[in-house]
């Protein structure tokens, strides 16, 4: 067990995977000499050379498309998209090529690649550099989707992604790179596709992932002071996802909310809430709530940016409202 950062855990996972498997290559903008826009790939080009750590021109569709072809022909590419906001440019290669190849071609041609990228708010990076677009990925059959929230998950989920037979989109959060935590390279927090209970409780379940997990945990601490005992579950893998532990927790508590940073409409939160409602309807005391980003582009003003995404306070107040039916002051 060592203390490290989310950023270094990802770097360690890439390093270990590249050492263990010579077919793993990295391709993306500034991943080599520069060491990654957020420093994740620092030094890897010195260790593995320019044939395995490939600095690409600013050509996102071809970066992802090249990764698809490399994966088809025996390599294990990790393509990096500097910001998830650029995923739209690559959506054809991702959603029509990577995602569908195995199926369209009758199971012959799989695409075992990982697309690493990062998203989220917190840096006043404005509307085109702050989004949470995981719902676009979740909506595409054929793609796997992972969003680590902890240091240990950053390492292990990436290592696990690099053993998958199909394309995995691995979305980091720019606000977590400097977060410290324990890394145990021998022990993952959970198996591939398994949600993990980060805090147990019996009054309600808060389901979350990525940076919002930490806001949810902070909210749970404050809920405890208010006499409410929240269970906080980290979804981690959004596809595949074992729903059994979620169903168990929702049936046990009768109250649940899903917290995401992405805008609420058409979100991962919407989908999880719908799935759990279908299965747990008779056990529910209250509707399953979705708490997420406001349905707007991310504004540059730091004030507006902060107000547009959930905070521990919003999560705490909403959870308390859900459990006690006492309205928070801002609801007036």
């Amino acid at each position: 067990m060592t203390e490290t950062t989310y950023r270094d855990a990802i770097r360690q996972a890439l390093l270990d995977a590249m050492q263990a498997d010579p077919s793993v290559i990295l391709i993306g903008e500034e991943v080599g000499l520069y060491g990654g826009a957020y420093g994740v790939t620092k030094g890897l080009i010195d260790l593995f050379g320019a044939e395995r750590v490939i600095d690409a021109p600013i050509s996102e569709p071809a970066i992802v498309g090249a990764a698809v072809g490399a994966a088809m022909t025996g390599l294990r590419p990790v393509a990096e998209l500097m910001y998830v906001d650029f995923i739209g440019m690559t959506m054809d290669q991702l959603a029509n090529q990577a995602a569908k190849s195995r199926y369209m071609f009758g199971g012959q041609i799989g695409v075992p690649m990982v697309l690493r990228t990062q998203g989220g708010t917190g840096r006043s990076a404005a509307a085109q550099h702050s989004q949470s677009l995981e719902a676009w990925v979740l909506h595409t059959p054929g793609l796997r989707l992972v969003m680590p929230a902890t240091v240990n998950d950053a390492y292990h989920l990436l290592r696990q992604s690099l053993t998958q037979p199909d394309p995995v989109v691995f979305i980091e959060h720019k606000g977590l790179y400097t977060m410290k935590g324990d890394l145990d390279v021998a022990t993952p927090d959970g198996a591939w596709g398994q949600p993990v209970i980060r805090r147990d409780g019996h009054d309600l379940v808060i389901l979350s992932y990525s940076r919002m997990l930490h806001e949810s945990l902070a909210a749970a601490e404050r809920l405890a002071e208010s006499g409410v005992d929240a269970c906080v579950i980290d979804l981690r893998c959004l596809n595949p996802m074992d729903e059994a532990p979620l169903i168990e927790a929702v049936k046990r508590t009768g109250r649940a909310m899903v917290v995401t940073e992405g805008v609420v409409t058409g979100s991962v939160a919407s989908d999880i809430a719908a799935r759990l409602t279908e299965v747990c309807f008779d056990w529910l005391e209250e509707p399953i709530l979705r708490v997420g980003g406001e349905d707007i582009p991310i504004p540059v003003s730091p004030l507006l940016e902060r107000a547009s995404i959930p905070t521990a306070t919003l999560i705490h107040d909403t959870a308390l409202w859900l459990v006690t039916r006492k309205a928070p002051p801002w609801a007036a």
Partner: peptide, 22 residues
Amino acid sequence: GKGGSMHIADRALGHLGANAIV
């Protein structure tokens, strides 16, 4: 205050918009 440095625009002066997507 919505756009910032990377997203300045002004229809009156013919600026159809600065862009943060290369």
